[in-house]
């Protein structure tokens, strides 16, 4: 597996994504969610909201890298707020 060039941060990143997917799958079995129409005007289920959160977070982080020199932890904070908003209102 050397050619994949694993590092601890990237391994943790993928582990967290895999964990999120596993938790969502378990939740879908134990407590299925009903799709709803939120602030974006589109019907979303819990999985859609996770996808939107991950995609939006990627762009927030990229924008942070591109436009500021501040530490990336601030971007992670914004992502957490963004995730809350998506799961609450979208």
């Amino acid at each position: 597996m050397d050619w994949i060039a694993w590092t601890l941060p990237t391994a943790l990143f993928f582990a967290s994504i895999a964990s999120a997917l596993a938790v969502m799958s378990l939740l879908a079995i134990k407590r299925p969610s009903t799709p709803r129409v939120g602030a974006l005007g589109i019907e979303t289920a819990r999985g859609d909201r996770l996808f939107l959160t991950l995609l939006g977070s990627a762009f927030i982080n990229l924008a942070w890298i591109g436009f500021t020199d501040l530490p990336q932890y601030f971007a992670l904070g914004i992502c957490a707020v963004f995730a809350f908003c998506v799961f609450r209102w979208v």
């Binding site: 050397d2 050619w3 994949i4 060039a5 694993w6 590092t7 941060p9 990237t10 990143f13 993928f14 990229l62 890298i65 591109g66 990336q72």
Partner: peptide, 27 residues
């Protein structure tokens, strides 16, 4: 895809040796 993500945070000078550069390439 995992390989690409891993490469994007590292520099390689060949010989399958990689060095962590963080967000440098993105910046």
């Amino acid at each position: 895809m995992m390989t690409v993500v891993n490469y994007s945070f590292q520099d390689s000078f060949g010989g399958n040796e990689f060095f962590w550069v963080g967000l440098e390439w993105y910046r």
